[in-house]
Design a protein around this nucleic acid. Structure first.
Length: 220
DNA sequence: AAGGGCGTCAACCGCAATACT
DNA sequence: AAGTATTGCGGTTGACGCCCT
């Protein structure tokens, strides 16, 4: 492995120093995000644009949450990963304050390699603790489910007679999250799953999501 | 107390997509 | 329209700290 700090093609690599963080943060606060290659030049950082962007997105950006992923967030990660697979940046959009890198790391460490019984015991203990804190909550593994378009429209309107058919060619996926007692429309996708990717980011109602229903801070 | 194993996290790399000229 | 630069994403790596023996 290359030694930390020895530049390849002139760029510094390795862990960021507090001084570098300060320079980057000051520059981005002043000029905004974007044009990362010029950031490295103009901010006096001997870092590649990619490195600057990554550091900002994963560490310096305001509003980032620190600390452990909550059981609620974990539930969302599990559900969204089941839907989208390793689309970490897409999943991260539904977890305010969390980065794709963080979610990716979390998934790999908690689910990809989860095999030892010890680990499972730990997990059980966590779930048990959660239950004691929120006795009304169902076990996290089963807290949400995917509803059909018809089920969802009925549930949202709280009137089964108002259930509507999904638009032709489109299937809306909706999660039921008991901890917020709400149906959350997640995405619209063609029933032809081969062309999902073209539609996967057609989020139905971002306002609804960011408006507080998924305000996970309230649950901590 | 020492050291080996393991988990976590920050950061790098390569590639693909997108924007710009 | 084509070539180049930039940005974004997902996979991977390596350092570090904690725990167990």
């Amino acid at each position: 492995m290359m030694a930390w700090g020895i530049p390849e093609q002139g760029w510094r690599k390795g862990p960021w120093t507090p001084e570098e963080d300060k320079l980057l943060a000051e520059y981005v606060n002043l000029h905004g995000e974007g044009r990362w290659s010029s950031v490295s030049r103009c901010a006096g950082l001997n870092r590649s644009g990619k490195s600057c962007r990554l550091r900002w997105v994963n560490y310096l950006r305001p509003g980032l949450k620190r600390g452990q992923i909550t059981p609620q967030e974990e539930g969302i990660i599990i559900e969204l990963h089941a839907l989208w697979g390793n689309k970490w940046s897409t999943i991260a959009r539904y977890l305010p304050g969390r980065t794709d890198n963080e979610i990716k790391n979390y998934w790999r460490t908690h689910f990809k390699k989860e095999k030892s019984s010890q680990k499972k015991e730990k997990r059980k203990a966590q779930v048990l603790k959660q239950k004691q804190q929120h006795p009304q909550a169902k076990p996290i593994e089963h807290t949400s489910r995917v509803l059909s378009y018809t089920e969802a429209t009925a549930a949202i309107s709280e009137d089964s007679s108002k259930a509507t058919e999904a638009p032709q060619g489109i299937q809306e996926m909706v999660f039921m999250y008991p901890w917020v007692d709400q149906c959350l429309p997640v995405m619209m996708m063609p029933q032809d799953t081969a062309s999902w990717s073209a539609h996967e980011q057609a989020v139905v109602d971002d306002e609804l999501l960011w408006g507080g229903l998924w305000n996970l801070d309230d649950n901590c």
